[in-house]
Amino acid sequence: MSIAVNFQNVSRHFGQVRAVDGVTLDIEEGEFFAMLGPSGSGKTTCLRLIAGFDQPSTGHIRIFGEIADGLPPYRRNVNTVFQDYALFPHMTVGANVAYGLMIKGMPRAEREQKAREALSLVKLNGFEQRRPSQLSGGQRQRVALARALVNKPRVLLLDEPLGALDLKLREQMQEELRSLHHDLGITFVFVTHDQGEALSMADRVAIFNEGRIVQIGTPSEVYERPHTRFVASFVGSSNVLTPDFAAANGGPRAWTSLRPEKIDVLLPGEIPKTGQAIVSGQVSSLQYQGAVVRVAVNVAGTRLVATVPTGAKTIPDGGTVSLAWDRSSAVVMEPE
């Protein structure tokens, strides 16, 4: 596998603001790569740097080994699906999709044929003559996708493409994007602030915070082995144990992450498995969440949250319970 996109110590400053601050990164060819982070963390700026809408202040970006410094967007074989789709309102859907081919000088009949194929790829057969204004949000999204894919980019950039869609449509599009990626075999770089989306779709995830990448890994790596307190709390929810608390319960004296679903809630009389760490405290709240119940427990001033499958046992609100976890479930993190 070759490297599709390479960031070499890239920074982008806007005045005093360091939107991207020393990012080094390799995205492999054919990979579905997600950039995850809260708003303002630099993920979208990184995407714009790949597309060529913006240039790094320092550092270099290589796309398939070629240095991209100063290269305008129209000289890069990457295409973008914009957050607001950016369809041209004065053109039909067909003309929108064929736009890139028209610019390349492809004859009309040929490019119309290609546009039809691209539209059928996103299940919009027969929409060529419509105007973007006559489409629903989900359909516009597909047109934007077709318009990018018809140019056969080596890298497809997606900037929060599902952000404007409702939940049902979003889940459907997630599946379709995955299968498109699988069928086309090109590199997808996907920007999102939705950790669920990133975990369920991507091969690898880069987690951004304050202009830096704080962790890169497969979804299960970043979920199971968060390197920092930020990752632990941003990806899923987690109990972050202080060094003192961790040390008092048999772990090393370090910040430690403990996922709620890894904690067993024991009623008085129940016995923990051998080798488990155990603490006890008072239930401070119960939250019904459908499949699970979230139990918050006050352990000598520290709040720990555990989840229990609904209906597994009846936990008394305000009562005393014990919490037990395998020591291997407690993940030691880097000091920040």
């Binding site: 796309i63 070629e66 129209y74 000289r75 890069r76 074989n77 990457v78 390349k104 080596r154």
Partner: peptide, 12 residues
């Protein structure tokens, strides 16, 4: 990746 294979018009 750059379109060096396609002859670039002057306005480009």
């Amino acid at each position: 990746m750059s379109s060096s294979s396609i002859p670039a018009p002057i306005h480009s």
